[in-house]
Amino acid sequence: NMVHPNVICDGCNGPVVGTRYKCSVCPDYDLCSVCEGKGLHRGHTKLAFPSP
C-alpha cells in the first residue's frame, strides 16, 4: 500500500496508507481506510482514491 503524501487522516491524525477517503462536502477532510471502516464522518459522501 502506498502512503498519500501530505495527507493526514482527520479521524486518527495518522498517515493515509492505501485508499484515501476525501469528503466531497468539506474542503479539507480526509480519512484512512480504518477510520472510514469505523463509520467516521458518515453524514457526507466521500470520494475514494486508491493511490496518490
Rank of each mutant, 00 (worst) to 15 (best):
C35S: 01
V34I: 15
C23G: 03
G39E: 12
L47H: 13
K46T: 11
L40K: 14
V7K: 10
N13R: 14
S24K: 12
Y21I: 05
R42P: 15
R20D: 06
V3A: 08
Y21V: 02
L47F: 05
P27I: 07
C12D: 01
K22A: 05
D10E: 11
C9I: 01
P5T: 02
Y29C: 02
N13C: 07
G18A: 04
N6R: 10
V7G: 08
S51R: 06
G37V: 06
V34Q: 12
V7A: 07
F49K: 12
R42W: 06
G11I: 05
V17F: 08
T45D: 12
F49D: 13
C26W: 00
P5W: 03
P15N: 09
A48R: 11
R20Y: 14
C12G: 01
C12E: 01
R20H: 07
N13K: 15
H41M: 06
S51T: 10
T19D: 12
G39D: 08
P52R: 04
P5R: 03
D10L: 11
P27M: 08
R20T: 09
P15E: 15
D28I: 07
M2T: 06
C9L: 00
V17I: 15
S24T: 14
D10F: 11
C9Y: 00
C12T: 01
L31M: 08
F49T: 14
G37P: 05
G11Y: 10
D10K: 15
V25L: 08
V7S: 09
G14A: 11
N6V: 11
C32W: 00
V25H: 10
A48V: 14
K22G: 05
K38C: 05
S24L: 03
P15L: 09
C23Y: 00
T19F: 07
V25M: 09
Y21R: 03
H44F: 02
H4V: 13
N1C: 00
H4W: 13
S33C: 06
T19E: 12
H44V: 02
G11P: 01
V3G: 09
S33W: 05
G39H: 08
T45W: 04
R20Q: 08
Y21G: 02
P15Y: 04
V25Y: 05
V16M: 03
P50A: 11
M2P: 06
H44G: 02
K22H: 13
G18W: 04
C9S: 01
L31E: 04
R42E: 15
I8C: 13
R42I: 12
L47D: 13
V17H: 13
Y29G: 01
F49S: 13
P15H: 06
H41I: 03
V7L: 09
R20N: 06
T45G: 11
M2Q: 08
C23N: 02
Y29D: 01
T45N: 14
G14K: 09
P52A: 09
C12W: 00
T45A: 12
S33Y: 07
S33K: 11
T45I: 13
P50I: 05
V34C: 11
I8G: 07
D28M: 07
H4G: 13
C32M: 00
N1A: 14
C26E: 02
